[in-house]
Design a protein around this nucleic acid. Structure first.
Lengths: 129, 129
DNA sequence: CATAAAGTCTGTAACCGTTACAGAGTCAAG
DNA sequence: CTTGACTCTGTAACGGTTACAGACTTTATG
């Protein structure tokens, strides 16, 4: 099938599909006589995999590695687990970071009593560190 | 003072300071005869403001607006509050999003019982959506 | 005073992941 | 045969920062 159908079936934008091929995430396809890319069901599977992993926040580097592990069916799951754990860990860190930001922002925001810029506690708080 | 001292006093990297000027966040400086940028205390204040706001996750566009509001001391705080509230809202959204990602990841990860790639539930779960 | 070292300048490109565009070529239906 | 939909390649944009090359200036040391 051509890239348009691959896009519809996988849910990936056409430009994104070509991008994934360019950066070596998606296996290169055969080409028609006129140079059109020809996708197989396997490519669609890969694209769905990539899409879902991206939705879960995995980096393209992680995904490249997961896809490569996927091909080696006799290996142990260990490496897959490790990537997943590391990613989960990263997410928790980001959540903690954002929560501390939100805390400071709430504190700063609460100190503003709604007067004029000149006495604005928010701007004051942002200025000094 | 020259850019090196401005960098030390503000905590911003030299390249970043020049970048902020280029994109119009930091007021342009006077120049010495040889073309060196000359920073004043006001610039240092601005840089500290930018740095702290960045640490709190404000976008450069937000910061540009906050800095511009800062100059108009007779205005009401309203616009400042609104930017801050919007940002806080965005942070909460991101936290919720990350928490739902973490939830799905934990669920997927727990389904893996540590065998071989061929039966790996993580890879399986990532593939279908 | 000469030279070395440190600092600064500009312009450009890299990073990540994706999207958008221009300009050319190809394919199918009316 | 023409129109429209599709695809190709190559390049650039987004945001925010950092890194580099090559040229220049200033400061410190001999």
């Amino acid at each position: 099938m051509k890239i348009g159908e691959a896009s519809r079936l996988s849910g990936c934008h056409i430009e994104t599909i070509r991008h994934y091929e360019r950066v070596g995430i998606l296996s290169p396809t055969a080409r028609s006589e006129s140079g059109y890319r020809c996708y197989t069901d396997h490519h669609i599977q890969q694209l769905r995999f990539i899409l879902h992993a991206r939705e879960l926040g995995f980096s393209l580097d992680d995904i490249r590695e997961l896809l490569s592990l996927k091909e080696q069916s006799d290996l142990s799951c260990e490496a897959v687990d490790s990537i997943t754990e590391k990613h989960l860990h990263g997410i928790h860190n980001r959540i903690r970071h954002l929560e501390s930001l939100a805390g400071e922002l709430r504190r700063i925001s609460a100190s503003c009593s709604g007067g004029h810029i000149a006495e604005c506690r928010i701007l004051e708080a942002l200025g000094k560190h």
